[in-house]
Design a protein around this nucleic acid. Structure first.
Lengths: 120, 120
DNA sequence: TCTTCAAATGAACAAATGCTCATATGTAAA
DNA sequence: TTTACATATGAGCATTTGTTCATTTGAAGA
């Protein structure tokens, strides 16, 4: 909470200054956190993974994940807010898909990371 | 919660089956969610970004983020659990660093995504 | 040994989250 | 227009989360 936490400011002083000047804006960090937060839920990550395989309507998603339509819809709302998915309406249905390749890449990168875990 | 949510099973039936068979294990999705959850917090994402610039001890991190040592330490605990950071002890200090390149890549990929947002 | 300082941790509590249930909205068929 | 169905949303509630405060652990210096 205070300015300096430990006494050896001399030692890490240079680093602290350098890192501080490299930090992004509060807004950027908030967006970044929001993005990962949206990915960071068991239900939502399954939704996104499913959508990486195929575009799906809400009821199909509910069926794939074996969850209520309401629960899925609430989560899709968050995913929309985080711009991780886009949708198109077709009659009574609404079809969802991943917003862009970044989302797919994030999932893949995440999978790489957790699959590497086994080695450690 | 039930098996099928909507009636046009005929239409999306094929997709549902295909997607279902492609889904990962519950364990994998839980790990994946855990990973992104660890990234999905304003404080933690700032910690990780700072560590992507330079290895830092806890007190230096507290100084950079202007937060209490305790708060930082609690968050580092989560980041350790998610294997996003590693640490080495040097005297009274503990220096933290990103665990591997995947973490760096995830951050970069995330930044790409949020910076692209502006266009939409 | 005693003291000091960096880091870790447990308890507590306010705030955020994810679900259910009930209901509203909107589209299409009867 | 009614009816039926897909989706969205609001309220409510149990659970999780992120911080503070107090304390503990552990290493280095007096």
């Amino acid at each position: 909470m205070t300015g300096q936490a430990c006494s050896n400011t001399d030692k890490h002083g240079e680093n602290v200054g350098q890192v501080r000047s490299t930090m992004l804006s509060e807004k950027d960090f908030l967006f970044l956190a929001e993005l990962f937060k949206a990915l960071g839920d068991y239900t939502r990550v399954r939704i996104l993974y499913a959508l990486s395989v195929s575009e799906l309507c809400v009821c199909a998603l509910a069926e794939v994940l074996d969850m209520s339509q309401s629960a899925i819809s609430h989560q899709l709302r968050l995913l929309r807010a985080a711009r991780l998915v886009r949708y198109r309406k077709e009659g009574k249905n609404v079809f969802y898909a991943l917003d862009d390749d970044h989302v797919d890449n994030l999932l893949k990168q995440g999978l790489d990371h957790i699959q590497e875990e086994g080695q450690v």
